[in-house]
Amino acid sequence: MFFKALQIEDRLSLNRFSKKTGISAKRLKYYNDGNKMPTGKDLNLILKNTDLSKIELMLLTETFNHELKSLIAKNAQQIEKLLSSKKERKESKNDIKTLFETELGKLYQCDCLDLLKTMESDSVDIVFADPPFNLNKLYPSRIDDDLKTEQYLSWCENWAYECTRVLKPGGSFFTWNLPKWNTYLSEFLNSILTFRHWISVDIKYSLPVRGRLYPSHYSLLYYCKGEKPNTFHPDRLPMGICPHCYGDLKDYGGYKNKMNPDGINISDVWLDIPPVRHAKYKKRNGSNELSVKLLDRIIEMSSNKGDVVFDPFGGSGTTYVVSELKERKWIGVEVGPINGIIDRFNNIHEDRANLKKIRNDINALIPKKYYKKRVEKGLWTPETFQIKAS
């Protein structure tokens, strides 16, 4: 975008512009590759040596701050006339077929945007989206996972808009991505949805990273359609307990008697979602997949039995399986092979056992597996303070 605005077409024209302005070619390339708007002296030098104004450069590089947005709003009628001659988007394909179905859900194999165009507005209760991260990974679907920044963000805005359209008023929208991409996407989502939380989910990798801080969390954006969500009943978590001595991992001081026997409030920092590595739980080879625990927490928090869950990026099918087990209706779509998802449903007893194990340890301040040992060792329990009070 930046080089196109300045009519820089090759290395020769880049060097000429660099010499003309006194801005190094390396820094000019940084603005172009990172899709950044120059500021300060660099901006002044560029404007001085071109016929562009600051507003023109912002428009050409798609840098929309509040000042520019206000100008666009004030001139909306004229802009609409300029754009109205553009062709409308193509109609959706009408040959999309259900390739797998249960009593609660349907799975399609196609581009999610094609399916979304066939879906009714205001028809689903939750959207959970885990799109490709644009890290140049090779997916079974052979999709292009190495797009330019503006292409990737434009694509994300397209599916996010369509997902918002099919979301019911009061419905919940979640998207899982790298913090880098969600910083961009949040600006768009803030214009059509109501922000609820930026949830940081800890990732326990130990990879060496040079030149920057070690990235240790995924970003889970949580929005709702309208002023507030229709449903919000998050689980409560157990307090930290040592698995060896069964004592407290945190000093609760004089507040132990005030703690809720059902557990501790969930915060917006989730430290207890493990990556899916063990062969017992991993459902597809060579690719990352989401934890059953993550989807259980999201679906439990923002839906009720019978509600409709939509995930536009099927992957290994975690969203669909957890929805099925929790008696939610679901709509699924995957552009790549879906045999792995179907196999997972054929062996759904494995995920059922895993989910049961996960839910055994929540909504109780002291998990059942530790309760008896704490009593034997004379350690406090919520009942300790009830006895004292009586």
Rank of each mutant, 00 (worst) to 15 (best):
E9W: 00
R11S: 14
K20G: 12
K29R: 14
K29I: 08
K36R: 11
L43R: 01
L45Q: 02
I46K: 02
I55D: 12
M58V: 04
T61C: 12
E67M: 06
L68F: 07
L68N: 07
S70C: 11
L83R: 08
S85L: 10
S85D: 05
K90C: 05
N94H: 10
D95T: 01
K106S: 09
Y108G: 02
L115Q: 02
K117I: 00
V124H: 07
V127T: 00
F128N: 00
D130E: 05
L135G: 05
R142S: 13
D145Q: 09
L147D: 13
K148L: 15
T149F: 11
L153K: 04
S154G: 05
A160R: 00
Y161P: 00
T164R: 04
R165A: 01
V166W: 03
G170R: 01
F173Q: 05
F174Q: 03
W176K: 01
P179T: 05
W181G: 08
W181H: 09
N182E: 14
T183E: 15
L185P: 08
F195I: 05
I203E: 06
I203N: 06
S206L: 10
L207E: 05
P208G: 03
R210F: 15
G211C: 03
L213E: 13
P229E: 11
N230A: 12
D235F: 12
D235V: 07
M239F: 09
G240E: 12
C242R: 06
Y246K: 10
Y246I: 03
G247Q: 13
K250F: 14
G254Y: 14
K258Y: 07
N260I: 12
G263T: 11
I266H: 05
W270Q: 11
R277P: 04
A279E: 10
R284C: 02
R284P: 03
N288F: 11
K293W: 05
L295T: 04
S302G: 15
D307Y: 00
D307C: 08
V308G: 03
F310Y: 12
P312F: 00
G314M: 02
T319F: 01
V322W: 00
E324D: 08
W330V: 07
N339M: 11
I341S: 04
D343A: 12
F345E: 03
H349G: 02
I358F: 10
R359L: 15
D361G: 04
A364F: 09
K372V: 13
K373Y: 15
L379K: 15
P382K: 09
E383N: 13
K388R: 15
